[in-house]
Design a binder for these strands. Structure first.
Length: 355
DNA sequence: AACAACGTCAACCGCGACATC
DNA sequence: CGATGTCGCGGTTGACGTTGT
């Protein structure tokens, strides 16, 4: 393979760029534009390959780059977008003005990934691998590498409470502990996660069978293997949370209680995107971005995780449109989040959110 | 003070997609 | 239709700074 074709014709310098080289590249590109990158080094008087020049310009010298650390809002947005797009760093970066794919990728690998990893409950993950009958080995690998939809960590152990995505919201929470981040009481600090996960009833409860939505059984659910039944009506059989009343009176309880647990966001996505007839009530309670996206751009069945999904350009435009239309403030606040009002997963002690 | 371990991030590498010849 | 050139992307590396012992 060797070097890129444009680098073979002449001896090129490699490694870090000197200020002089930067100046030459800036002068040339700002004056003439980059045009064909392969000819830039020759015209700009640089002993570099065009590819290196392009990279240097895009990742470092471009005037519209935003330098400095990522804000909690940006971090939250990255987590959310990553849950939809997977490791499509360039696509994610397009929604973060002034940020490059390289920057987002580095940030994910160095910061967010660790924060998410600190939230991972290993037994829960192990059980997930057990319970999920599709591609268990690949999923296990994904969990280890964390190159997985973070929403896979949506595991609920309690029936009567509602959960945010612990991954995204806890990342936000962990950033709130950073010394360079001080929540603004005036809500200037946007809580994107709460925007995406409104605290409205979205999961049925065993104690209130009437809250069940008939659409839920159409969504594949998972139950953590270590789930301890907290209702006299619940037992665990074959890794599934079973309500003994299920099947006895489907008109009263619905036919879906046998596997009733909390769905993963990606599964909501998948189920909905496969044209499963979720009701409007359910969709209203799901992340508006997801519901809008899925209702407008159904994808083919068969893709199991977000990074398997093909996201068409129109879908990207749609995601972009939704994100840019999102309000910059919401009624929810970080203080409410910090108080534990929303995040109550018992497997994730609050101390683990500390970075 | 010296060294190791760790974290960050700029840069490189290899590959696939696409355009042009 | 295949060869070649170019671009863009994601994964990986390695230099350098920071922190811990």
């Amino acid at each position: 393979m060797g070097h890129h074709s444009c680098c073979n014709k002449q001896k090129v310098k490699r490694g870090l760029w000197s200020p002089e080289e930067d100046e030459k590249l800036i002068n040339y590109v700002t004056t003439y534009g980059h045009g064909c990158w392969s000819s830039v080094p020759r015209l700009a008087g640089l002993q570099r390959c065009g590819k290196s020049c392009r990279l240097r310009w895009i990742n470092y010298l471009r005037p519209d780059l935003k330098r400095g650390s990522f804000s909690p809002q940006e971090a939250a947005l990255i987590v959310e977008l990553h849950s939809i797009l997977g490791n499509r760093w360039a696509q994610i970066a397009k929604h973060l003005p002034g940020r490059t794919d390289n920057e987002v990728k580095n940030f994910w690998n160095s910061s967010i990934k660790k924060r998410l990893a600190s939230l991972v409950d290993v037994p829960a993950l192990a059980s997930l691998v057990d319970v999920h009958n599709s591609k268990p080995s690949e999923e296990a690998a994904d969990f280890v590498s964390l190159n997985v939809n973070p929403n896979a960590f949506i595991l609920s152990d309690q029936r009567d409470q509602l959960y945010l995505s612990p991954s995204a919201s806890s990342v936000l929470q962990s950033f709130s502990h950073d010394t360079d981040f001080k929540p603004n009481p005036s809500n200037e600090n946007v809580d994107l996660i709460h925007h995406h996960f409104p605290i409205t009833p979205m999961f049925p409860t065993l104690s209130n069978p009437a809250s069940f939505d008939p659409s839920w059984p159409l969504i594949p659910f998972v139950t953590p293997k270590h789930h301890v039944p907290n209702s006299s009506n619940e037992v665990v059989q074959d890794d599934k949370l079973v309500n003994p009343t299920a099947g006895l009176n489907p008109y009263e309880y619905g036919p879906f209680m046998a596997t009733q647990t909390v769905p993963k966001l990606c599964e909501i996505l998948q189920g909905n995107l496969c044209n499963m007839p979720l009701t409007s009530i359910s969709l209203e309670n799901i992340d508006p971005l997801i519901s809008k996206l899925s209702s407008c751009f159904p994808i083919s069945a068969g893709s199991s995780y977000s990074h398997d999904m093909h996201v068409a350009p129109k879908q990207m435009d749609f995601i972009d449109a939704i994100i840019t239309s999102m309000p910059l403030s919401s009624s929810s606040s970080l203080s409410a989040l910090s108080s534990g009002q929303y995040i109550t997963n018992p497997t994730l002690p609050s101390s683990s959110w500390d970075p």
